[in-house]
Design a protein around this nucleic acid. Structure first.
Lengths: 212, 212
DNA sequence: CCAACAATCTATCACTGATAACTTATCGTC
DNA sequence: GACGATAAGTTATCAGTGATAGATTGTTGG
């Protein structure tokens, strides 16, 4: 955190100072968001970060690892936001909709991280993928767990239509993700007015998941 | 259709006869389905089709055009499936769920066409994307229009909670898309048993959109 | 039999992600 | 200050990708 000149070497060869790793991630996030992960080359990332292309590999083993890192961070932000929106809330219909709204707002207000976190195409299959995706997967499960805890509160007081918290959680999550991902990926689609659509969508999800 | 030897030259140089274009599409569909579109190389497609890699470009301008062609065909199937599920059906709750089920089944059974049409990342600078995506996109929107027509039937007999067909359609579509796209993009996620989850999701959407 | 022509192949291009080996800048230590 | 040691960056290069150019083959109508 604090610059402690004696402890360790900052080591910033050419122009810039600061953390190379963060500069790389900033460049990667910007390019990934604009053009899509697999339409961005490592040379483009390197140029935007102001270093040579092979220098990337001192900080990330593969290009996918950069996307994975950005994915982990996006999940962490979402988790903390949902946790913050949860404290002190009673399980009421209005608060349920507010919690759903936190998720949608996160996606709509942070389309770039959301895109990287939830809309990345898998590049390979099987065990190699598992290894590559384990950290984003854990971060995603953490966010999902937060979502699940919220749903469990409504189930505990008998407000949910289903007893199965896992099913209800996955169903609601999928319902929210569908709207967010389409609004992000297809902005040119002739959508209804955004605020009205989001409100109607969340109300529909509540009616489908909670007792009247 | 019929082999008409005099009209036009079948011209099958090396081994096989038949339509090269269909052989290529068969090979591409097989590999795309198994490994994902952008994990398959044109050389792999060519080898499975039994021709050299450049020979592909006599039939398709780009590799994406092969995926687009398969995409258009798949959407034609979706549209016809939804149309078939619609004829003779009264607007009942059970039939509503059956119609939505057609959509989900299509997405789950045709992940790559679905991905190309609705989950693709912005790959380049707009116009190139439009050109590349226009045919699959139009085919997808045709399916969407079919979806909207179905919703309108339920609205016409007063079964929908909202009067606005556009809002209801977009909300239901987003809800279905969310589940399909997550099942496709995150197959490794610890989902509930798929059949149960899909059934619960569709029931939730029905409860949220239709009157009891 | 042969010119014409379409289908296919070989050779190659620019570019991709990734690696190896060399170079440089900074450090703690004398 | 001068010294290796080492971290960080570079250039050069690899195999593999999608796509193109031009030579080559095979079939066909005359």
């Amino acid at each position: 955190m604090m610059k402690a000149p004696s402890i360790r070497s900052p080591r910033k060869a050419k122009g810039h100072g600061g953390e190379r790793r963060e500069e790389i991630l900033d460049a990667a996030l910007s390019l990934f968001s604009e053009k899509g992960v697999h339409a961005v080359s490592t040379r483009q990332i390197a140029e935007l970060a102001g270093i040579s292309q092979p220098a990337l590999y001192a900080y990330f083993a593969t290009k996918d690892d950069m996307a994975a890192e950005l994915c982990v961070r996006a999940f962490a932000i979402l988790t903390s936001r949902m946790a913050a929106a949860r404290v002190g809330h009673q399980p009421t219909a209005a608060n349920f909709e507010r919690s759903m709204r936190v998720y949608v707002d996160f996606g709509v207000e942070n389309p770039n991280p959301y895109r990287v976190a939830f809309m990345i195409e898998k590049s390979q299959h099987g065990e190699f993928l598992d290894k590559m995706n384990s950290r984003p997967m854990l971060a995603g499960l953490e966010a999902f767990q937060m979502f699940s805890d919220i749903v469990a509160e409504y189930q505990a007081v008998g407000m949910t239509l289903l007893d199965d918290v896992q099913i209800t959680t996955q169903t609601l999550w999928a319902g929210l993700h569908g709207l967010v991902s389409l609004l992000i990926a297809r902005p040119e689609f002739p959508w209804a007015e955004r605020e009205v659509l989001i409100a109607a969508h969340i109300t529909m999800l509540r009616r489908g998941a909670l007792k009247p």
